[in-house]
């Protein structure tokens, strides 16, 4: 007997937008036979408590990621450049949304 199990299904990454105006945020990953099933599985697994207004799914193997071993050259140079942070300004008291 040939068994088709979850292990044979591709992995999908799930992104949920919790409310209008916010970005989709990575929520986790799950197995599904196709994208439509992935959306439904994501609905059932990640939005049961009213977390979502929108779901994106994408096959994990379609994501190009930075390599962990490149971490040094990729990210360390930004560490000692404090002047890139907007912390050198005096903010007037009556400006609220900064």
């Amino acid at each position: 007997m040939t068994m088709t199990s979850e292990r044979d299904w591709p992995l999908y990454e799930v992104f949920i937008r919790s409310r209008q105006g916010l970005s989709h945020v990575h929520a986790g990953s799950l197995h599904a036979a196709d994208a439509r099933m992935a959306i439904e599985n994501a609905r059932d697994v990640y939005t049961r408590r009213g977390e979502g207004t929108s779901i994106w799914v994408v096959r994990s193997d379609l994501i190009t990621a930075s390599a962990p071993e490149d971490k040094g050259e990729m990210f360390d140079p930004a560490d000692n450049k404090v002047y890139r942070h907007p912390t050198f300004y005096d903010i007037p008291d009556d400006v609220e949304c900064l």
């Binding site: 199990s5 979850e6 439904e40 599985n41 059932d44 697994v45």
Partner: peptide, 9 residues
């Protein structure tokens, strides 16, 4: 259920 996702569904 056949898979954990279906179990929850």
């Amino acid at each position: 259920a056949p898979t954990v996702e279906l179990d929850i569904a």
